[in-house]
Design a protein around this nucleic acid. Structure first.
Lengths: 197, 197
DNA sequence: CCTACCGATCGGTAGG
DNA sequence: CCTACCGATCGGTAGG
C-alpha cells in the first residue's frame, strides 16, 4: 500500500484496505461483507465509513493502485533500448515480483475487477488493454527481428500472463520452490520455448 | 452436460444449469441470484426449486460434472504406455478441448469452486489434488528418462495449467487465432521450452 | 468510533 | 409453475 518499503506509519485506511484485500481474496468481493472487514480491523461496520466512502471504493483503490504500478513499470521497460528478449524477461520478473509481494491485492485485482462500477470499470479495462497492446508490440518486434520463434503473439502473451497469474494459487512464501527458483524456472520454461535457436 | 454429444433432449434441469453457468461466469456465484437465473430460463424464482434443490446444488453439479471428466480422462492418459512428452501433449489438448467446449462450466468450476460447502468442498479438493499428483508424476518420470529439461516440476505443471486456464479470458469462438492454431502454438510454446534438445 | 436502525434484496418455503 | 411471503443479512446513514 502507500507505505510499502518506507517507514511512514500505516494509516487506518491502509490497514482497512489490506485486511479487506485478504478477506476478499478468500471469499470474493460480494461474499466478503463490510461486517467481516470491520471485525478483522477490530471496529464496528459503521465505523469503516469514517475512513472509506464505500465497499466499492475499497475495490477501486486496490485495482487502481496495482494497475498504476503495472502501467508505470511497463512504460519504463517499453521505452528502453533493450532487445525484445530482455524486455520479456523484465516483464516476467515484474509480474512475478508484484504477484508475490502484493499477493492479496494482486488476486483481488485479477479476480474481482469485474465488480468495479462505471466509469471505473471502463477506465480499468482501458488501462489493461493499453498494457496488453504494448506487451503484444514487444512480441511482434521480437518476431520481426528474428529474436523470437514464429508463435502466435496473442497465444504467447496470454500464456505468459496466465502462467504467472496462476502463481497466486500455489506460491507460498517460505515453501519450496522458493522465489528465485520460480523466477528462474518460469523464465526458462517460457523463453526456452519462445526464443529462436 | 448430460446431453453432450448425444441426441437426448435437454431436460429443464439441464437448461437451468447451463443458463446458470453463463450467468455465474459473468457475475460470480454470490452475485448471480436465483431470480437472475429464473429470468434467463423464463420462469419465476420459486419454480427453479422444482428442478434443483438449491443454489449450492447448481454449483455442485457444475464442478463435479467437469471434475469427473478430468479424472476419467487423466486415468486413461496416465495408464497408457506413451512417453511423458506424448502424455503432456495429450493433457494440454485435453484442457484446451474442455475449456473451449464447455467454456461457461469451466470458468465456473475454476473460479467459483471455493463457494462449495462441506463435505463437497473437501471432496472437490481431493479430486484436484489427486489429478495434480498424477500430472506431476508424469513430469518427474519424463525428467528421469531424460525426455524433459531440468525445470522445477511444480513450476512446469502450474505454468501449463495456468496458461491454458487463461484461455477462458480471451478465447472467443470464430475469432482469430482459431482453435487449431491455439492448440498448436500453446503446445509449441510450452513443450518447446520443456523438451530436452 | 459506537448504537440504533433503514430499505433493499437475498435464498428458500407454503400452499395451491 | 405461480402468488405470496418468510427470516436473515446486506451496504449504508443518522445522530451523537
Amino acid at each position: 500500500m502507500g507505505t510499502s518499503g518506507t517507514n511512514i506509519a500505516k494509516t487506518r485506511k491502509d490497514v482497512i484496505i489490506e485486511e479487506a484485500a485478504i478477506l476478499i481474496r478468500e471469499k470474493g468481493y460480494v461474499a466478503a461483507t463490510m461486517r467481516d472487514i470491520a471485525a478483522k480491523v477490530g471496529i464496528e461496520a459503521a465505523s469503516l465509513y469514517n475512513h472509506i466512502q464505500s465497499k466499492q471504493h475499497i475495490l477501486h483503490e486496490i485495482c487502481f493502485k496495482l494497475a498504476d504500478q503495472y502501467t508505470t513499470k511497463m512504460s519504463r521497460i517499453d521505452s528502453s533500448e533493450e532487445s525484445a528478449i530482455v524486455k520479456l524477461k523484465q516483464l516476467i520478473e515484474l509480474h512475478i515480483d508484484i504477484n508475490t509481494k502484493y499477493s492479496a491485492l494482486s488476486t483481488v485485482m485479477n479476480d474481482e475487477w469485474r465488480h468495479l462500477k462505471e466509469p471505473h470499470l471502463s477506465r480499468f479495462l482501458e488501462l489493461r488493454n493499453s498494457y496488453e497492446r504494448k506487451f503484444l508490440r514487444i512480441i511482434y518486434e521480437g518476431k520481426e527481428q528474428g529474436e523470437l520463434r514464429d508463435i502466435n503473439p496473442k497465444v504467447a502473451m496470454y500464456s505468459i500472463l496466465g502462467s504467472i497469474r496462476w502463481l497466486q494459487n500455489w506460491y507460498s512464501p517460505g515453501k519450496q520452490p522458493g522465489l528465485e527458483e520460480i523466477k528462474h524456472s518460469i523464465t526458462e520454461l517460457l523463453l526456452g520455448g519462445i526464443i529462436n535457436k
